[in-house]
Amino acid sequence: MSKSIAPVTPQAELPLGKSGKKGQRPQRAPGEKNIWQRLNNQKALILMSLPFVIWLIIFRYIPVFGWTMAFQDYKPQQTFFEQEWVGLKHFQDLFNEPQFFRALENTIGMGVLGLVFGTLAAITFALLLNEMRFTKFKKLTQTISYLPHFVSWVIVANIVTTMLSVTGPVNGLLTSIGIIDGPINFMARPGMFWGLITTAEVWKSTGWGAIIYFAAMAGVDPQLYEAAKVDGASRFRQMWHITLPSIRPVIIVLLILNIGNLINIGFEKQMLLGNNIVADRALVIDLYALNYGIGMFRYSFGTAIGIFKSVISVILIVIANTFAKKIGEGRVF
């Protein structure tokens, strides 16, 4: 969105996001210089980033050498030069596997649901809690809400199945207020599985996910609220027109990163909450990779799946990033 000076909203006064939201900064600092001069001027910046670039190369890029495994019939007992090269065989195997596409579909389905509802829940929670007056209570709620993040999925799965069991409290409640006629075995409904996972995920991660938005809200200039109050803006209007726009850059950046991570949803919750009845909806890529790749010590096949996921992730994040830049809403790179 273009930075129109809209007098109605106090947005114009916002220092946040002023810093040239988009990539195009009109001029460079004092005068255009040639590259060497600029490098010379930026010695401090280069010095500050160089050690970490080296770190990235050593700790994050050198191990990617392991990707060669995907093009070999890798055996751990052989040295690199003894491995047998097989080209794209493992990728072909992968794409010939009908189960894999089902896993891909489920992964993306649950990934999208988790992303949408997870983000919405965290932002809503942060916004509402930010409006809370009673400071002590506010801090208490904040602290308690992040507890579920520390509970392992094994324990969560136990609690969820107990709550949702045929004789459990949820069925009891729904039956007594007449929403359903008889108890539903929620765990045995393939159509409900994605929703179940998403609900559990939202419950577990909302408080944790909101922390970053709390931090962002701490950066909002209080003068904006004062000005809004003078104008007689309601609390909702303040939320909508001050708080939310102020944290928008953070929201966008997190969205872009999470879109890149759409496919990396793990397998633990699906494995623990899933069962043979809902298996068609519960199989995800990481579980498939475990059962048919690493679990059988098929390193090459497992690596091929990893590469496939990386490629998808990079494509997704580049698209998201380009899109965000196009509409003028921040960037990741």
């Binding site: 069962n275 043979n276 009845i277 298996a279 059962n291 048919y292 059988m296 098929r298």
Partner: peptide, 23 residues
């Protein structure tokens, strides 16, 4: 042997039977 035909097909067969028999 790890990664052998037996292992892979067995895994597939087990996935099928566990689901279909349950259903």
């Amino acid at each position: 042997p790890s990664g052998s035909n037996i292992q892979i097909i067995l895994q597939r067969a087990d996935d099928i039977t566990e689901q279909r028999i349950t259903q």
